[in-house]
């Protein structure tokens, strides 16, 4: 009897696995339309416009002086999206020349850290699990002497 039960269980196991949805729980996409880059005092350094262009098309940094920025995603109405409750989301930054500038995320803000003089381009992403939900256009970054 036990043998039969085991055989039935073995048969049922793949069936139960097959009933599991391949994607399981799907958390909703962040439907961001724009991104605002502000300094620690709330002053807007730049922002995207319809995520096509940057209002101020470059950021000026000083070598060895990190810039503390607060990133805020906006929906299509222009309202700020509150992403603080979503542990599956995070802001990231990509740089064309990663040796020049890097991103250091913190809770609610992040540091843009320059590592030498020069010029490169960066863009911000909203990272969702294993993919991006939002990518900004490239933003020019110029790093001068301190």
């Amino acid at each position: 009897m036990m043998r039969w039960r085991r055989a039935i269980m073995l048969l049922l196991l793949p069936m139960l696995t097959a009933c599991e949805h391949p994607l399981g729980l799907v958390s909703s996409h962040v439907e961001a339309a724009d991104l605002v880059v502000a300094d620690s005092l709330g002053g807007v350094l730049t922002r995207t416009e319809l995520n096509r262009t940057w209002r101020v098309d470059s950021l000026h940094l000083r070598d060895d002086v990190p810039l503390r920025v607060v990133l805020t995603a906006l929906d299509f109405r222009g309202d700020a999206l509150d992403l603080s409750e979503r542990s599956d989301l995070s802001f990231r930054m990509e740089a064309e020349h990663a040796a020049l500038v890097q991103w250091e995320p913190q809770r609610g803000f992040g540091w843009i850290r320059p590592f030498g003089r020069g010029e490169t381009r960066i863009r911000f992403l909203i990272w969702h699990g294993d993919h991006t939900d939002f990518v900004t256009p490239w933003l020019r970054v110029i790093i001068d002497s301190p």
Partner: peptide
């Protein structure tokens, strides 16, 4: 039917993944 489809972009990352029961 259990169906799964992954679409890979250049570099091998998943651009879109579909799943259907």
């Amino acid at each position: 039917v259990r169906f799964e489809q992954s679409e890979f972009e250049q570099g091998g990352f998943v651009g879109t993944r579909f799943g259907q029961l």
